[in-house]
Design a protein around this nucleic acid. Structure first.
Lengths: 328, 328
DNA sequence: GTGAAAGCGCTAACAG
DNA sequence: CTGTTAGCGCTTTCAC
């Protein structure tokens, strides 16, 4: 900045003003300074600017991982969310700092804020950490979580109508004539729990009882999920339809069924959840419950910026619908 | 920091030293200061630290997008890479700043470095931007690209043996008795071009001619790819095998073939590329060429840190192999 | 319309 | 082993 100032024959203060569009700078000098800066490949140092201004135009995006299987997240839903959040952030002039955090050490998400690297955090999935998340929010860490809305909740939540989603999926299968609908997903996760409620509701509505053996606790991580799902189907349960808690699980289930010689949807109908971009290209194309991923990014970001700006954490719910394709 | 110092009855300098593990601080005071800091939820402000130290423990990870279809990247290969790079970075004490950049404005990747937000950049895929990338590297922007190695190249490249990969895939199909092997991928991309060389090599080796009509220029973006692939197969080309430039393309091809009543691998054998985590769970499980994604992250990061540390850009090549599953 | 000067939170000589 | 001090690159009062 000193260099630019010297060449332009002005002070650093003027350069600063010119570059940040301060009104009290003549159009002429502004232009000249801009040109000089460009020719020097000079850009204002954001770190110093942030330090001086005491704020911080970046937010943290946390990807949790299970410490046991320290594998890269492989659910395409995450990437889509990441992309969508990244876009929304860019549009609002923010940077995105991505960090991988051990799901059992969720408190670490605060460190990004405490250390001034980010002014808030977006977390995809509540995992099993409802209490810790509450603690963080109470401590004043701006925090928005994609997931299900729970009772005593200090953090803001953006999510889709999970119960409705589960209901739509199950009802569709039941209407199609399914008699034994398995539910694949980890009920300890708030989102999944809500979807399961919807699943139960659909059954209740037609007076159908739900057997315990139809609910299978399957984790989201691809590796573990595959084992669990194959194990379940290998026992040849009497099942003619499947409600999966994510598209990834649905795809694994379909593959697993195929290996046993069962066809989808003829022998077993399967509906997924998320409507990941790839779901339409799967074989067979996945019938699934949509999560509006692009809008999700926008809402997550705007909820977070509101909190950072001093507003109250406000939950937002996105509409959901069943996308009919061929797997059910 | 002032507060911590006051409570501990020492100066800010001592707090700084204690917290950064300076050897000249007695174990006792160190411990005491740590405890006080913790009780205050105090963490060193990284921005200020970076400013003072004149360095910057963060690197930029760029996700390019085609400006025409401003859609979130949907290739699972990207997320895997992102996760793998994030892990490698965490292990070496670096942060990761993710930004979405218009593929036609690749120069923007420099801004993260120019503005001091990052000390280097990792880019997945060379896209069509070889020249711009060279310009950036020449300008001194530490830059490592995942992709194919080209002739006059100022930036460092980490990639797998693309030509060998293409060769292995094609040879396998040919050995299986395929007579007309289609190649799906955008030849303008260096990586894909190299794989195509391998594909040609395999054909040459068995004295088989390659027909022009067998090569189909298909972009990586899921939406566009789907259209292109469906369009290609809809014309019912005489094809009994497919070499795809990514697993995503392979999956789309399989789906597309299925819709036309063709079975994989019975009627048409398909081999993918990447070995994304999900490939094994596809229906049918994908035969594919492995890219060692976890190691890729480690190598990308270590190559970049070497450049940042003043070293010469050094290309690295990762071994490749064919993973036999059921699609071919 | 522009400049001088102070200070954001931190670290690293240098001095003791 | 610890404290004093200067300064990283920037913005912003206050003064002219």
């Amino acid at each position: 900045m000193e260099d630019v100032a010297r060449i332009a024959g002005v002070s650093r203060a003027t350069v600063s003003r010119a570059l940040s569009g301060h009104p009290a700078i003549s159009e002429e000098t502004r232009q000249r300074i801009h040109d000089i800066a460009r020719s020097l490949n000079y850009t204002v140092n954001i770190g110093a600017k942030n330090l001086r201004q005491g704020r911080n135009q970046t937010i943290g995006f946390v990807i949790p991982y299970e410490s046991t299987v320290r594998q890269a997240v492989s659910d395409p839903f995450f990437l889509s969310m990441l992309g969508s959040v990244a876009d929304a952030l860019t549009d609002r002039g923010f940077e995105m700092l991505v960090s991988r955090v051990d799901a059992t050490q969720i408190d670490e998400v605060a460190s990004a804020v405490d250390s001034g690297r980010a002014s808030g955090v977006i977390l995809i999935g509540q995992w099993h950490q409802h209490e810790q998340l509450n603690r963080l929010a109470d401590r004043g860490v701006p925090l928005v979580v994609w997931g299900g809305q729970l009772r005593k909740q200090a953090y803001a939540t953006v999510g889709s109508e999970n119960q409705l989603g589960g209901y739509l999926a199950a009802r569709h299968l039941l209407e199609r004539g399914a008699r034994h609908v398995a539910f694949l997903g980890d009920l300890n996760l708030p989102e999944v729990g809500l979807r399961y409620q919807g699943y139960l509701q659909a059954h209740a509505e037609v007076g159908r009882k739900v057997l315990k053996r139809l609910q299978v606790n399957v984790p989201f991580a691809a590796g573990l999920a595959k084992t669990a799902i194959e194990h379940y189907f290998a026992a040849r349960p009497r099942v003619d339809a499947v409600c999966a808690a994510s598209d990834l699980l649905a795809m694994i289930a379909i593959q697993s069924l195929g290996a046993l010689g069962l066809r989808v949807p003829e022998d077993v109908a399967v509906v997924g959840y998320d409507d990941v971009p790839f779901a339409a290209s799967f074989n067979p194309p996945l019938t699934t419950v949509s999560q509006q991923i692009v809008r999700a990014g926008v809402e997550l970001v705007s909820a977070l910026l509101e909190i950072i700006g001093g507003g109250k954490p406000q939950n937002r719910t996105l509409p959901t619908s069943l996308i009919l394709r061929q797997s059910a």
